[in-house]
C-alpha cells in the first residue's frame, strides 16, 4: 500500500516547482545586488534545492514500492 495522499502531494510539489521556476515568481528576484549582479541565479539554486529536498522527503517517506500511483 502506498500512503493514500502520495499522489496528491506529488502533484502539489510538481505545481509548486513549476511555479517557482517560471515568471512571474522569478521576477521579484531579478534585482541587482548593490554591486550590480542579479540575485536570480541564487534564487533559482535555492528554490531548486528546496524542491529536491521536498521530493526526497516525499519519495523516501511517503511512498511504498508495492502500490500503484
Amino acid at each position: 500500500m502506498k500512503t493514500p495522499r502520495f499522489g496528491e502531494r506529488l502533484v502539489a510539489l510538481i505545481v509548486l516547482a513549476a511555479l517557482l521556476f517560471s515568471p512571474p515568481l522569478i521576477l521579484p528576484f531579478d534585482r541587482t545586488a548593490n554591486g550590480g549582479l542579479s540575485w536570480l541565479p541564487l534564487y533559482l539554486f535555492l528554490a531548486w534545492g528546496i524542491v529536491i529536498a521536498l521530493a526526497a522527503w516525499l519519495m523516501e517517506h511517503g511512498y511504498d514500492d508495492q502500490g500503484g500511483a
Binding site: 517560471s22 515568471p23 512571474p24 522569478i26 521576477l27 531579478d30 541587482t32 545586488a33 548593490n34 554591486g35 550590480g36 549582479l37 542579479s38 536570480l40 541565479p41
Partner: peptide
Amino acid sequence: RAASHPELNDALSLEAVPGGGIGWV
C-alpha cells in the same frame, strides 16, 4: 569582482535571456 565589472551588470538577469520571460518558459 564581477559586480564591479560594469559589462557584467546585466549578465545574470532575465534581460540577458533571449526572448525574456517567454523564452524562459
